[in-house]
Each structure stands twice: as structure tokens, then as C-alpha cells.
Design a binder for these strands. Structure first.
Ligand SMILES: [Mn+2]
Ligand SMILES: [Mn+2]
Ligand SMILES: [Zn+2]
Ligand SMILES: [Zn+2]
Lengths: 144, 144
DNA sequence: ATATTTATGCAACTTAATTGCATTCTGCTT
DNA sequence: AAGCAGAATGCAATTAAGTTGCATAAATAT
């Protein structure tokens, strides 16, 4: 994706075009896994921490990112590839966290199961898988 | 459950018997939902916060409690009713969090789905449902 | 070009959780 | 029952994630 595409993306989500937002967007679009705040802070150290936090929050508000909670408490953030908007996010995909490399991945092709709980109203469901990712598995047992 | 039962429980899990541990254990056994650190702090305010934190952590280490992560970052803790030990926890039940009262419940009768991801090793899975719990639903629409 | 609105950086603050250490308590041995 | 070693507790201090207020800078609207 190129600069003008990021500008369009920001405009479509009612966000002003700024250097920080472009750079953050670029980071997310040039990786295959979700990013944590720390990932961003490390790679975009010329921006203030507060600005990065506010950037993440405005992206979530406007439907560009979704927050992926995990056991450790330090959330990861994943790109919304579905058409999420300011009004609402709609995610029903599964997430995977690798116990070796720590990467969190969105699995858009796997949907969270629909479970019926008698006498309860279910509004959302989060399914998070843990284990060893493809990359780490290959490193452990290289293809023969 | 009575005092001597709690003592046995602690002994079985290789934990010394102390007032704090008995009281914490009692709290968990006399409620139907998971408890947060704050819940404990509010109800057991004669113990130092640090002691409560350490109690929770030792209970998790020894297989008496499991940590239930959630979106907000403030974890809930649920009783291990299966036979978890110092060596390993084994939980495959679903969790529910009510968006109205905030309570987190363990659903031991509902198991997390088994999902096969080609080229990945899945070791654990967490399924968390969100919505309105039975109690809150009844309060909204009393039975006619 | 100018005005209006929004974003940024910095410092200070909040909140959750952890660590070090002196003191007290528990379980075990005499 | 007394004494001991290891473990738990309380308190103060610290770490770490995240937020808030405000002056300044930048982006969009007119
Ligand atoms: Mn995702
Ligand atoms: Mn549970
Ligand atoms: Zn991995
Ligand atoms: Zn409820």
C-alpha cells in the first residue's frame, strides 16, 4: 500500500492526515501479525508515547483497529479488514497467540462458534487459541 | 464448606494454613461467580493488598484458582473445580461475562471448541462470551 | 489567507501490580 | 512444650501501563 492509499483510508474513517497516523497505519499494513503498544513505541520512537496511545485509541474509535485482549494484560491491536466504522465494529474471527514468539494473529477465515446458553443473551464471543505458530514450528523442525 | 475442609484443601495443594488464605478460599466458595482482585480487596480489607495479591498468585501456582483474562485488563479469578495441581492446570470450559452486572462466570458444562489449524500446534483455547446474564435478564423482564 | 478545529508533546497524575526487607507466624523436630 | 527453619505478612518504595491538562503546532474549513 502506498502513501495516497493510507490518506484515503484515514479520510474514509474521518481522521485527519498526520505523520504519526500514516506511520502507524503503515506499520500495521506491513506486518502479518497484530502489534502491541510496545511494538509501536519501539519502532516509532520519534513520536511521544501519549501520541501513540491516542493514535491507537482514535483508530479503534473509527474502526481501523480492534483490540485483542490477552492473558498477560498487554493488549495487541489488529487491523480491521472487515468494514468497521465509527458506529460499530463487527468481528467474529478467531485469534491465535504463539507461546514461543509471542505474536498474535487474526484468523479471518475462522469464526467464533455460536453457543446457545439458555436464559442468557449472548452478544459477542472471543475465541483465542494458544500454541505454536507456523513459523516457530518450522524453525523447530525444518522441512526435511 | 467448613473450616476444616478449607484446611484440607490448602494442605492438598501444598499451601500453609493462614487466616488470609482461609478467608480468601471462603469467599470463592461462597459465591457463584469469579472474583476480581478488587472484589477481594473490598471484602477483606483487613489484609494488606500485597498479601492478597500474593495469595491469589500462590493459589494459581498451586492449582486452586485460574485467571480469567478479559477485555478491560482487570482479570477475574475462578475456582478450579477440576483437579488442577502445581504441575498443571487443565481448563477447557467456557467463560461468560455479563455486560450489565460485570460478573464473570465459569461454565463448566460448556467446553471450548476444538479447532484444527493446519501447520499450527494448538495447546489451549479460551472462549469468552459476552452478553446479559440470567439474573440481569430477569431483572429487566420479570417473569409474568 | 485566515479562522477554526484538532493533534502533538511535555509534565504530571492515576492505577495496577511487584519488590525488598524487617517482623511474625506455621509446621516440624527435638 | 520449646526451639528452629522456612514461609507468610505488612509496610514502604518501586515499576509499569495508561490517562489528563494544557500550551503549542499542524490540518482542514471558510
Ligand atoms: Mn483480529
Ligand atoms: Mn473458569
Ligand atoms: Zn511463533
Ligand atoms: Zn449480569
Amino acid at each position: 500500500m502506498k502513501y495516497s492509499d493510507y490518506k484515503k483510508l484515514l479520510k474514509n474513517h474521518h481522521l485527519r492526515i498526520t505523520d504519526c497516523r500514516i506511520d502507524v497505519l503503515e506499520k500495521f499494513h506491513s506486518t502479518d501479525h497484530a502489534l502491541s503498544f510496545k511494538d509501536l513505541e519501539d519502532e516509532l520512537s520519534d513520536y511521544d508515547r501519549v501520541t501513540l496511545y491516542r493514535t491507537l485509541n482514535s483508530f479503534i474509535d473509527q474502526g481501523l483497529l480492534h483490540r485483542i485482549p490477552n492473558d498477560s494484560g498487554m493488549a495487541a491491536y489488529g487491523l480491521c479488514r472487515e468494514d468497521c466504522t465509527e458506529e460499530e465494529h463487527h468481528h467474529d474471527h478467531v485469534h491465535f497467540k504463539c507461546n514461543l514468539c509471542g505474536h498474535v494473529e487474526c484468523l479471518p477465515n475462522y469464526h467464533t462458534p455460536v453457543i446457545d446458553l439458555p436464559n442468557y443473551d449472548i452478544e459477542e464471543s472471543y475465541l483465542i487459541l494458544n500454541g505454536v505458530c507456523k513459523n516457530c514450528k518450522e524453525e523447530l523442525q525444518p522441512v526435511s
